[in-house]
Design a protein around this nucleic acid. Structure first.
Lengths: 226, 226
DNA sequence: AACTATACGGAGGATCCCTCCGCTTTGCAA
DNA sequence: TTGCAAAGCGGAGGGATCCTCCGTATAGTT
């Protein structure tokens, strides 16, 4: 999806396709589907639905243009042509908006993890997952920050993103640990933090574009079972 | 000022002690001393000096109590008993205040690096340095954030902190690389980012206190020359 | 004591977050 | 259609923060 033609969360129809993989894979996939389908909630009035979509589209565009920080909620409301009160009614806080905007992309990322769970080499799959997670996160600073802030807590913020990324990472890590390809003392949270920390520490990837690769390769190498 | 004898930047007299080490060590130490001595600048009027010190003490105490984020500059001015305008005259922005408050501690950290440069095992020295850097940074979120934000740029912000940490890390890394204890493709900036990223990704070290150790050990293991 | 360069301090402009509440619209039912 | 209550709208406004500007006060010199 390019920057034109906004395609926010409301576009994706549904999963439905079975995902190959072992027990861990199935568990993860089941969790994802459950989360993905809790959209309708309760019937919305037509105008409410309209404004909801306008807000989502405006936020999507604004986040793409500048960072998902750097944009004030007031501006998003303005661009959507609705009042600030309306924005806050639909999205009580920034996190809810982030979640709504990125939900589909995160779910898609989760799908990618499901595929990787079926790959031959657990070690390679884990490395590849980390790489995709890093690339994905690098354009979504704000999401990353919130995700890290609520990683260990059972807060009700960002439930989908947190669950998808958390379960995917844990499943891939566990598989690599079971085959002896990864140290057993590391947890999924550790890995997420290491990967996302890299992102937070990189100033929108300017200078040497190879730095992400180098840092990632250090982490991947360090993961190997000693 | 009461938070148990505040000891802000103005307290330390001067270095003067020779530091043992090789060529890299001497270069780093020389840089440090030069930076450490540029304090006086130009004579200040008595009341200006007084207010400067009061501000530094107030900032020091406030940063210690809560994070160095979490404190508004207005509050620091209030606690120092001076106007907000006075604060901004002495410290044109938050970074300058951070730099002033932490300068001495960072210089001390640099001294530690100089000692490590003379240690027997370059690999152990590097690992130990990373550990100390992480511990040091973990209570100084704000500093860490600013440091990362200006790492690669030649901005005039945080010159002392940046130089000390940058030179120390590079020197220790290079030594380990020369003895074949560390991969040759990694740069000092990479290492700083990995270490500080860990910090940024950890929510004030709550739950499992071992997580910093685990993450650090992954990085250290990953640094070993393949 | 007079005087001037310095320094003080806080009012105020700008931005942002979020809440509250009177007005408007929608969708249903008579 | 028409009427109406519930649902939704929107923006004024309070609170917080950052930072600038400029009239007033003071230190240090002549």
């Amino acid at each position: 999806m390019s920057a034109t033609e906004p395609t926010p969360a409301s576009a994706s129809p549904g999963p439905g396709d079975a995902v190959p993989g072992g027990a861990a894979a199935e568990a993860a996939a089941a969790g994802l589907e459950r989360l993905q389908s809790d959209r309708p909630e309760r019937e919305m009035r037509a105008d409410a639905r309209r404004n909801y979509d306008k807000l989502l589209a405006a936020a999507w565009a604004a986040f793409a243009e500048r960072g998902s920080d750097e944009v004030s909620l007031e501006e998003i409301a303005r661009r959507a042509g609705v009042g600030i009160g309306t924005l806050y009614r639909h999205f009580p806080n920034r996190q809810c908006l982030l979640e709504a905007v990125y939900r589909d992309q995160v779910v898609a990322l989760g799908g990618r993890a499901a595929k990787l769970l079926a790959a031959e080499s657990p070690a390679d799959a884990l490395a590849e997952w980390l790489r995709e997670l890093v690339v994905f996160s690098s354009t979504k600073r704000s999401l990353t920050r919130e995700l890290l802030a609520t990683l260990e807590t059972e807060s009700s913020f960002l439930p989908v993103c947190k669950t998808v990324i958390g379960q995917s990472t844990s499943a891939l890590l566990q598989r690599a640990q079971q085959t002896g390809d990864a140290r057993a003392d590391i947890t999924g949270s550790d890995l997420i933090r290491l990967a996302q920390g890299m992102i937070m520490a990189t100033d929108q990837a300017p200078g040497s574009s190879g730095e992400l690769d180098r840092m990632l390769s250090v982490i991947v190498a360090g993961l190997r079972a000693s």
